[in-house]
Structure formats: structure tokens, C-alpha cells
Design a protein around this nucleic acid. Sequence first.
DNA 1: ATTCTGACA
DNA 2: TGTCAGGA
Length: 137
Amino acid sequence: MGDDIRRNMALFPIGIVMKLTDLTARQIRYYEQHELVIPARTGGNQRLYSFNDVERLLEIKDLIEKGVNIAGIKQVLLPVDKDSEDATVVSEQSEVKRRELTDSQLHKMLKQQLIGGGKRPNSVSLIQGELSRFFRK
DNA sequence: ATTCTGACA
DNA sequence: TGTCAGGA
């Protein structure tokens, strides 16, 4: 996919992202501290987000609303590193070589259930129950 | 006018 | 998380 570069192309400042995601600058920056999103920076140290970053933030917002905490989100969303951010292709679909996660399949499922699907009243508690098995510190 | 980091009445 | 300070 060639327009992947466009999705990973840093374009908008935090102000725009705030409106696009309905998140406060505080939250957006906070999530960055926890490496949930790594926006590019301008010469003036201003954050520049790509479409992928925004989508990512929307997913995070979704999970937060579903009661998932940072620790949990870190495990549901694949870790992002400066490379896969604005460099090249690499998205959730690519066969990431992360053996660290013995159950990448489960992660995929959880992600789908948490993000994709609409909102079933019970699935939430169900999911949280399953996740707690991982989030447990 | 905007955004950034650090800090906490 | 909100919000203010103080600088870029």
C-alpha cells in the first residue's frame, strides 16, 4: 500500500488532534509519556500527528471509555516505536516479529472485541475479566 | 495565537 | 486530569 506513507505522514498539531479526538491536550500528552503514541516533532519541538496517530488516539480513547487503564492498553495496542511510526509500512496486519507475546492471537482478538464491535453491556465486564488476567501487576 | 514542560493550591 | 507558570 503506497498511501501508507500518507497515513504515517505527520500533519497536524495537537490543537487539531484535540478536536479530532475530543481528548484534552493533557490526555494526549499523557498517553505519549506512556508511549501509546509517538508523534513526530517540528524543529520547534511542536508535536505533529499523522492520521495513524489520530486513529491510534481514537482507539485509546475508546479503551479508556471502556474502563481499560494504561497498562491494559499497552498490551492491547501493539507497541509503537519511532520507526514504525512515520518511517514506513508496518501496521497491525504485518506479521510483526514480536515473539515476546506468546499469544499474539489473543491480543488480536481482544483488540477486535474492545475496539471493533459495538457495545454490548456484558462483553465489557467479560473483557475486563479476561484482561485482568494479564493486567495483574 | 499556539504549544511545551514541569508542577501541584 | 485540570490548570497555571514561564519560556519558545
